[in-house]
Every structure is written in structure tokens, then in C-alpha cells.
Write a protein that binds this DNA or RNA. Structure first.
Length: 490
RNA sequence: GGUCUCUUGGCCGAGCGGCUAGGCAGCGGUCUGCAAAACCGCGUACGGCGGUUCGAAUCCGCCAGAGACCUCCA
């Protein structure tokens, strides 16, 4: 019980102490991407958020099964009944086989996630790979009496469900309000109520993604996959379900209803929702046309970007804000994050070179405690980072002989930074090229700078400055240190 | 229209009734042949108006502005 993690549960709207269903084990499900386009900055938010959660849960000793799905069918492009499947639509536009579209963007997503150093989940199920499970779930819901068949499609009976169970708990919605506010869409005559949603949809003749079922040749409803797959891999009741805030209604509300209708009990114990990324104060979203793809961030090829940003900068940028706050994108903010991260990573390097003394004038234990306290408080990474920056001062002061550290404390400090910076926050140092060529050129630069040291010893400032300035022109940053020099290629 | 959330110093962002995070940028200093880096110090912000309280950025009310969801969305 050393680390008592508290998680904000959307269901109760407050922070709750996290106690898993089965001691020592955690079942975590997160809504993954719909693979019909390039991943954008918004996709990185939940990925990084729940990656942090995944890493932290493992760090504090849990065995975690992390399931994050790939949605490759079931989301309609437009209005519920008249629209067509997103994937199918994209396939027609590009004249590709639907699964080809899915594969392209799945590969893309994986690549981006790897660049962001997001760990792969334990299981990454695809909706199309679980049609049978989804059909079974439809059958269960029908058998329980919370769905009805209409013209080859099966609809969830929201009103009947709402009579027996609370509906709208998660999103704070009242069914009466929904009834008066629901927009009337075309072709809803198949439904008994506009609130009802399809759990199996009959495919129109031109619809290319279709599977046989007893009701019709069709495809599963938009919300069903998560219910079917989370329960398949994590059980009828599991610990944590995460996703973007925009999924709270109707997606997660529908999930709750489906699972309860099918199994008679609540599936999820803790609901977590990450907030949105905004651009000029407005949500960044594909449908809003203001999304910047991750690839564009990494290459800098977008009108709004002043430069290319390292994936680690994006990651750090996100960690510097709490996951439940909106995070506003700007070049200025991103560059501030970039510099801050560099300073942090540099301090970690400095830390490796520190020498222990007999006595400590710094309080490592307290620093460590504060970092864990922040993480336990609903994954407050910005607070933890703030404390790590306090530690940066500590490290630099020790390096400057303005403070000292004992061997024990030094070990602890190293372990703290290695744990937080690399294991939990998942940051990586800038890639070193390595190899024989690199080594040779590094020695050449060292040689030049050694000549500069000699020049300095002879007070030959002209030569010394020339070496430094010329190297600077080539992109090298040279710094003098107490006993020599250091350099890096910017 | 309904439901909900937010408004913090030049920028980004913590904060959840007293002890006034942190990063970036800026200013002054130390160090340095000069730089760079680092270190030290500085700037006292909480949309407006009221109220509760000994005390409010933090609680309540009103007003203003922004946003989210209600339709696919991370």
C-alpha cells in the first residue's frame, strides 16, 4: 500500500482510490483509433495518457493486461441510417479494398506510436476480427429483451433499458432531455425511438463490408465492438476503461448499456477520460479540418508549424499538462516544452557524472516522495515534472560544487530519474548514430577542440575563437568546462 | 435550444480555503579571456461585480467571454 493511486472516475465525478478487482492485476481497456486516416495530434493524447497509466501501474507492481482496439468497421461516415461505413467510403474513394485501407493506416498508426515511444498494448484486437463475438453480444442483448429486430437490423431499445437501469449516468444526461433534444434524422422509421442505436445494421446492396448473420447480411453497430472485445479479453467486469472525452456520449454510454443489457451487470469500474487538444482554443479534430497529423509534426511540413518537432517533444508537451485539461497547441508552447525537455535530459547526463561525497546537503528522499505523490494523485505528471525540475537545480548545483550528495543518495537520485524520465514518462535521449564512422568523426572534433584548449593555454584567443566559431557555423555547439570542453551537434 | 466545463503573470501550464508550482521568454548578478552552459536573485498573476469567511485564484450568486457534448470524432 505504499503507492495509493487515486484515479478520477468519470462515473462518480471524483477521485477514487484505485483498488483492482483482482489483487495485483489490472484489466485496462482503451478506445483506439478508427483507421481511416492518418493519426493526428489528437490521437497522441490518449495514447500517451494511457501509456503513462500502463507504465505506472506496472511500475507500482501490477500485472496489467492492456487492451486497445483498432476500429476497422462500424463507424458510419454520416447519419446513422443513410450513411455509409467510414472505411468503406474511404475504400471507394481510393479504389482500394477496405482491408487495404485499414492496413495502411494501421501501419501508419503503429509507426507513429513507436515514434512517440508508446508501448504496444498487451492485446490489440480488431473489430473485423471479432464479428462472431459481436453477433453473440447482439444475441445476448436480444435474449435479455433490450433490443428488437427491424427490417434486418437490430436496434438497442434505449427506453426499455432506461426503465430498468439508469441511462446517461456517465455523461450526466437525462433521458427526457435527450428525447426532446435529439435531432430527427432521415430514415429513422425503422427505430422505435430516435434514441435507439443500431447494434446490427443491414447492409445496403452497394455496401462492401458485410458479414452474414441470422438477421441480414450486414455489419455490427458502432458501439458494439468495444463491449464485445473488452469483455472477451478482460471479463464481464474489469477495472479501467479509458478514452477521449468526446467519446463519453454516446459511445461510452452505449457501451455501458450494452454490457449491462447483455450481462446484467456493470462492465467497467473506473471510467477515465482524457481531454482534447485545442488549436486556437478550438478542438483539433479530423472532422473540423484543423487536425495536424503526427507525421506533419515530425517533418514540420504544415503551414502552421514553424519547424519540425521531435516525437519526444510532443510527448513531453503532453505530459506537461494534466490529462484531464485541454491542451492548447502553439509553436511557442511546443518550443518551450522542447527546451525544457532538453534541460531535463541534460541534467540526467550530468547526474551520471556526479561524484559522491561523505555528506548530502540535498534531500533526495523528499524529492522522490513528492514525485510519487504527484503520480498517485490521478497521474499528475505536470506536478511530477515540476519536482523533477527542482531536482535539475539540485543536480546542477552538485555538479557546480555548490551542494554535495552522499553515495546512497546519489544512487537513489539516479534511480529516481531513470524511473521517471525513461521508464514512466517514456522519454528517450536524442538518437545517437553510432558506428565506426561516427566514432571517427567524434574523435576528429575532439582533436580540434584539444587544439583549441592548447591555444587557450597560450592565450591565443584568436585561434581559440576561430575554432569555436567555425564549428558553430557547421552546427556544433561548443562549451568550455572546468577541465576541458563538451560539444554537441545541434 | 438542452447539458456540462473552462477563464491564472509576455506565452504554456499546476492549483481544490491560509504555506502564494514548474517550464519557456525577460531583467540583474556570479563564473568565464570572451561566450555558452550552469548557479543565485527579480517580476507577486488569478475575467468582472457582489456575497460567505478571521482569511478566496480556490466556496456561493449574478454578469461577460471561450469551449465541449447533444451527429462520426481521441
Amino acid at each position: 500500500m505504499e503507492n495509493q493511486l487515486q484515479i478520477y472516475n468519470t462515473l462518480s465525478r471524483k477521485k477514487e482510490v484505485f483498488i483492482p478487482l483482482r489483487s495485483g492485476k489490472v484489466g485496462l481497456y482503451v478506445c483506439g483509433p478508427t483507421v481511416y486516416g492518418k493519426a493526428h495530434l489528437g490521437h497522441a493524447r490518449p495514447a500517451v495518457t494511457y501509456d503513462l497509466l500502463f507504465r505506472y501501474l506496472k511500475h507500482i507492481g501490477y500485472k496489467v493486461r492492456y487492451v486497445r482496439n483498432i476500429t476497422d468497421v462500424g463507424h458510419l461516415a454520416n447519419d446513422a441510417d443513410e450513411g455509409e461505413d467510414k472505411i468503406a467510403k474511404k475504400a471507394r474513394l481510393d479504389e482500394l479494398e477496405p482491408m487495404e485501407v485499414v492496413q495502411i493506416y494501421t501501419n501508419d498508426y503503429h509507426k507513429n506510436m513507436q515514434q512517440l515511444n508508446v508501448l504496444p498494448p498487451s492485446i490489440e484486437p480488431r473489430a473485423t476480427g471479432h464479428i462472431i463475438e459481436q453477433i453473440q453480444t447482439v444475441e445476448q442483448i436480444l435474449a435479455a429483451g433490450y433490443a428488437y429486430e427491424s427490417n434486418g437490423s437490430v436496434y438497442f431499445d434505449v427506453e426499455k433499458y432506461a426503465n430498468d437501469y439508469p441511462y446517461g449516468e456517465l455523461s450526466g444526461r437525462k433521458i427526457e432531455d435527450l428525447q426532446t433534444n435529439t435531432r430527427v434524422l432521415d430514415g429513422q422509421d425503422e427505430k422505435r425511438s430516435p434514441l435507439d442505436f443500431a447494434i446490427w445494421k443491414k447492409a445496403s446492396p452497394e455496401h462492401i463490408m458485410r458479414w452474414p448473420s441470422k438477421w441480414s447480411d450486414g455489419f455490427p453497430g458502432w458501439h458494439l465492438e468495444c463491449t464485445a472485445m473488452s469483455c472477451k479479453y478482460l471479463g464481464d467486469t474489469f477495472d479501467i476503461h479509458g478514452g477521449g472525452m468526446d467519446l463519453t456520449f454516446p459511445h461510452h454510454e452505449a457501451e455501458i448499456a450494452q454490457a449491462k443489457a447483455a450481462h446484467g451487470k456493470d462492465a467497467v469500474r473506473y471510467w477515465m477520460h482524457n481531454n482534447m487538444i485545442t488549436l486556437n482554443g478550438q478542438k483539433m479534430g479530423k472532422s473540423l479540418g484543423n487536425a495536424i497529423s503526427l507525421e506533419e509534426f515530425f517533418t514540420g511540413e504544415h503551414d502552421l508549424l514553424e519547424k519540425a518537432y521531435n516525437p519526444m517533444t510532443i510527448r513531453f508537451f503532453m505530459l506537461m499538462a494534466h490529462y484531464r485539461s485541454t491542451l492548447d497547441f502553439s509553436n511557442e508552447a511546443l518550443q518551450a516544452a522542447e527546451k525544457g525537455m532538453e534541460r531535463l535530459l541534460k541534467a540526467v547526463e550530468t547526474l551520471d557524472k556526479l561524484e559522491a561525497k561523505a555528506e548530502s546537503t540535498v534531500d533526495v528522499k523528499s524529492l522522490s516522495g513528492k514525485c510519487y505523490e504527484a503520480m498517485n494523485d490521478d497521474l499528475n505528471s505536470p506536478i511530477a515534472i515540476a519536482h523533477l525540475f527542482d531536482g535539475v537545480k539540485m543536480i546542477n548545483s552538485i555538479a557546480d560544487d555548490k551542494a554535495s550528495i552522499s553515495a546512497d543518495d546519489l544512487e537513489q537520485l539516479k534511480s529516481l530519474y531513470s524511473t521517471f524520465v525513461f521508464d514512466l514518462f517514456g522519454l528517450k535521449k536524442a538518437e545517437q548514430q553510432g558506428g565506426a564512422n561516427t566514432e571517427a568523426y567524434e574523435h576528429a572534433i575532439d582533436l580540434l577542440l584539444q587544439l583549441r584548449v592548447d591555444a587557450k593555454a597560450n592565450k591565443d584567443w584568436a585561434t581559440a575563437d576561430k575554432i569555436r566559431d567555425e564549428l558553430a557555423k557547421l552546427g556544433f555547439e561548443v562549451k568550455d568546462t572546468k577541465d576541458g570542453f563538451s560539444w554537441e551537434l545541434k
